[in-house]
Write a protein that binds this DNA or RNA. Structure first.
Lengths: 218, 218
DNA sequence: AATGAAAAGTGTATTTTTGACAAAATCACT
DNA sequence: AGTGATTTTGTCAAAAATACACTTTTCATT
């Protein structure tokens, strides 16, 4: 029995809402094992960095993003989760809004990345399917915090959009009137006076977070 | 930069209620560093075991207990949390009832262990004070699950006892009538018909978990 | 201009949960 | 019998969660 080979990796489940759809970022594995499979962005932990620094490294060097909101989720330690080696994984949840993606996410040479609808995931390498599942569960819990959605919609948004997000993440239908009542009663957002002109029916009002709320986040 | 030295340890915050007091189990460190300090029971992770198996090992070989209820809490990775080496720690919360302790906890030669009142902790070695704090926070969250207290009081108990437990863990006063109402409405417990004959004033009724509930736990 | 389709918007009543609050009952002891 | 300590019990109000259906706004079609 030895204890010298416990490699450690961090993995990040980076979630966003793109065009109203709940999505997760995956990378294409370029070499064996699991060559060709899609996997979570990850990194082997170095001696001289914390888990948080390591995750930060993933987002910068493999995803091409600056700081994002992230939260540690769970540490996985099945013996055979990694072939031929013993590697533990610490999974993090990341949240980012889609406009930040457009503005700030850079291409990284040699890395093929893609956003997948959460309901249309490909077959994942390693034990990443289990890890994604766990992170979604934790995210469902995080969504109870009333102001968490600013991570996904920091700028203008409509209430129907927001509701669809909650419905996808929580994986259940919500009543429109009750949802609306709840969000508005939080007193965090205000009507911009503008409307969402896209789409078929009646345009939805655009809301934004109140200045006072955004300030108190910092 | 290398990644061969990331040792991993598990630590367990084992909580109980002894004589109505919220307590945690600590071990005396017998050698440097932190010789003489009290620390959390822990174990270096071996190549061929999962974190859960390792924690199980702690409870058996260092604490002298069979299986207990446990839940992963958080993974700590500060570079300098351990002197001279890089060691990550995965903290687990453990819960046990005091009668199981009396019946089942064995002395382990060479190990000095002691239950401490949570409000009277000694100076802890390493970063264990931070870890205890985090575990208590998580435990406070776990206490929202209505049936968690069976881990601390599986057998007969009185409602005032139970309330004191909640008050200590949540670290706030609760209204007696409202607490009582809430617990009874869970419909998990029943009056035994007996009373707690110890103490000064009016004896409290003894309650127990209903058979039907205990069965559905297995 | 009229019509229909699509989606957003809106209010009320009911139930459930939470919170505040004070008096009576039981026991031990003297 | 009286005192002290502790347990037990109920009601009312406020807040939060739930259920539920029709009207309004826009666009597209005729």
């Amino acid at each position: 029995m030895s204890y010298t080979n416990n490699l450690m990796e961090t993995l990040i489940c980076l979630f966003t809402i793109k065009n109203g759809i709940f999505q997760i970022l995956l990378l294409r594995k370029k070499s064996d094992p699991y060559k060709g499979y899609w996997i979570l962005p990850g990194n082997i932990l170095l001696d001289n960095e914390t888990l948080e620094q390591n995750v930060e490294g993933i987002t910068q060097t493999k995803i091409g993003l600056k700081t994002i909101y992230k939260k540690q989720c769970y540490t996985f330690s099945n013996i055979n989760r990694y072939p031929n080696k013993r590697v533990l994984a610490v999974a993090y949840i990341g949240l980012i809004d889609s406009s930040s993606i457009l503005l700030k996410m850079q291409e990284i040479p040699g890395i093929e990345k893609k956003w997948f609808n959460i309901n249309e995931l490909p077959k994942l390498g390693y034990d990443h399917e289990i890890i994604v599942k766990k992170c979604i569960e934790r995210l469902q819990y995080l969504m109870r915090e009333p102001d968490i959605f600013i991570k996904l919609f920091p700028s203008d948004f409509t209430l129907p959009e927001l509701q669809k997000v909650y419905e996808q993440i929580l994986n259940k239908k919500l009543d429109r009137r009750n949802f609306r009542k709840k969000i508005i009663n939080l007193n965090l957002i205000e009507d911009t006076g503008y409307k969402n002109e896209i789409g078929n029916g009646r345009p939805a009002k655009l809301y934004r977070f109140k200045e006072t709320f955004i300030k108190q986040l910092n």
